[in-house]
Simulated assay, not measured.
Amino acid sequence: MKFSNSKFVWFDGKLVPIQKAKVPVTTHAIHYGTSVFEGIRAYWNSENLFIFRLGEHVKRFRNSGKFYSMSLNYSNEEIKKAITNLCKKNKMKKSCYIRPFYFIGQYGINLHVTKNAPTHLAIFMFPFGDLFNKNGITAGVSSKRKFSDASTPTQAKMGGNYLNSIIATQEAKKKGFDEAILLDLEGNVSEAPGENIFIVKGEKMYTPPISSSALNGITRDAVLKIAKDSGYKASIKKFNRNELNRADEIFLTGTAAEITPIIKIDRKKVGNGTVGPITKAIMSEYTDIVMNRKKKYSHWLTAVY
């Protein structure tokens, strides 16, 4: 996925041209994956730029680092202000993706990371549209399993954790699929490499629990709330690979993916092979919400201008 970065980034408290935001090759995060990141969407509705669930993202951003005793040397309010100021500095009036991340800097080859390890915070952004085809994508169940809390905290959005996602994605692409689906160590459905997964059976929809190594996604949480408010029965429960084959509809949720339908799984049609009615309804409602056309959910949005 190619993108064009905006001119300015926020780096350690200052708005600077992107070419001046540099780190040395001895940076700890480059060697050991000691970086924490978030993906945040902002939507331009022709009148203002609205950041979706900014507070929830910043809270998770901080909590991810706590799993590894990494210090984030800015308050949540300072980070939120930095993000909105960056949007203004770049004069962003397009829907975009915002990537804040913090990482351990000069710390030698020491694996004993403590709160005293030096960290840096950077934020960049770029215009962004659809990650996937909203008319539906194909997916295949990966031979690679999602790691579990028995080895690595699954709720930490750490750079190093996503090597698992990279290898699953590589496998999927080699087989001709658009995306992968990972199972947990017990063989239950977990999630996609960068998205949560929902299945629809009849009038009910399900998504795996975090005990299946699924991320407690912010978009996942939004969809659960939207579904219930819309009168659908939405719940969290474990289900296995066979349930994917029996599902009437399947869709992914995530900041970058938004709501993305899966119309084929392991080369078999999901339902009739087109976007299902419940998925369509959730997609439409989600779009209205992020574009600030639903006042009931306006508290999820932060206006930039």
Rank of each mutant, 00 (worst) to 15 (best):
residue 123 I to D: 08
residue 147 F to E: 12
residue 241 R to P: 03
residue 282 I to S: 01
residue 67 F to P: 00
residue 113 V to C: 01
residue 68 Y to G: 01
residue 85 N to P: 01
residue 212 S to T: 07
residue 122 A to I: 09
residue 250 I to F: 06
residue 256 A to F: 02
residue 140 G to V: 04
residue 94 K to S: 15
residue 146 K to T: 06
residue 152 T to Y: 15
residue 184 D to R: 09
residue 63 N to G: 01
residue 197 I to P: 01
residue 270 V to T: 00
residue 28 H to K: 05
residue 163 L to C: 12
residue 240 N to I: 08
residue 89 K to D: 02
residue 230 S to Y: 13
residue 59 K to Q: 04
residue 51 I to W: 03
residue 103 F to H: 10
residue 153 P to H: 03
residue 252 L to R: 03
residue 208 P to D: 10
residue 157 K to P: 02
residue 242 N to L: 13
residue 127 P to D: 11
residue 300 W to T: 04
residue 7 K to N: 13
residue 274 T to E: 15
residue 242 N to F: 14
residue 95 S to D: 10
residue 257 A to H: 07
residue 275 V to E: 04
residue 94 K to D: 11
residue 176 G to F: 02
residue 54 L to R: 02
residue 54 L to M: 03
residue 85 N to L: 12
residue 149 D to Y: 13
residue 239 F to V: 03
residue 129 G to A: 13
residue 40 I to S: 02
residue 16 V to S: 08
residue 103 F to C: 06
residue 49 L to N: 07
residue 296 K to F: 11
residue 142 S to G: 07
residue 178 D to F: 00
residue 43 Y to C: 05
residue 295 K to W: 06
residue 256 A to D: 06
residue 266 D to V: 02
residue 258 E to L: 04
residue 203 E to R: 14
residue 102 Y to L: 04
residue 206 Y to L: 15
residue 283 M to A: 11
residue 128 F to D: 09
residue 133 N to T: 04
residue 277 P to K: 14
residue 44 W to N: 09
residue 68 Y to F: 15
residue 244 L to S: 06
residue 24 P to S: 05
residue 8 F to H: 11
residue 177 F to S: 00
residue 65 G to F: 07
residue 295 K to A: 10
residue 47 E to D: 12
residue 180 A to P: 01
residue 149 D to G: 15
residue 147 F to H: 07
residue 186 E to W: 13
residue 42 A to D: 01
residue 239 F to T: 10
residue 260 T to G: 00
residue 265 I to T: 07
residue 262 I to K: 02
residue 81 K to A: 05
residue 66 K to D: 10
residue 167 I to C: 05
residue 18 I to Q: 12
residue 207 T to F: 08
residue 53 R to E: 06
residue 52 F to S: 04
residue 235 S to I: 10
residue 80 K to G: 03
residue 108 G to D: 12
residue 283 M to N: 01
residue 147 F to C: 03
residue 187 G to H: 03
residue 213 S to L: 08
residue 283 M to D: 02
residue 81 K to M: 02
residue 146 K to W: 06
residue 159 G to T: 10
residue 141 V to D: 09
residue 299 H to P: 04
residue 60 R to K: 08
residue 290 V to T: 08
residue 86 L to C: 03
residue 23 V to L: 12
residue 64 S to A: 08
residue 229 D to M: 09
residue 187 G to W: 09
residue 105 G to D: 15
residue 79 I to R: 09
residue 78 E to R: 06
residue 290 V to R: 00
residue 116 N to Y: 15
residue 121 L to H: 04
residue 63 N to L: 13
residue 82 A to H: 01
residue 222 A to K: 08
residue 223 V to F: 04
residue 36 V to N: 08
residue 223 V to L: 14
residue 66 K to T: 08
residue 16 V to I: 14
residue 131 L to T: 05
residue 50 F to I: 06
residue 280 K to N: 15
residue 143 S to K: 12
residue 229 D to A: 13
residue 110 N to S: 10
residue 63 N to Q: 12
residue 206 Y to M: 11
residue 3 F to I: 10
residue 8 F to G: 03
residue 227 A to W: 12
residue 176 G to E: 00
residue 147 F to K: 07
residue 35 S to I: 08
residue 213 S to A: 12
residue 14 K to Y: 11
residue 43 Y to N: 07
residue 41 R to F: 14
residue 294 K to D: 11
residue 88 K to T: 14
residue 192 A to D: 02
residue 259 I to V: 10
residue 43 Y to L: 04
residue 2 K to R: 09
residue 111 L to D: 00
residue 283 M to V: 08
residue 46 S to F: 10
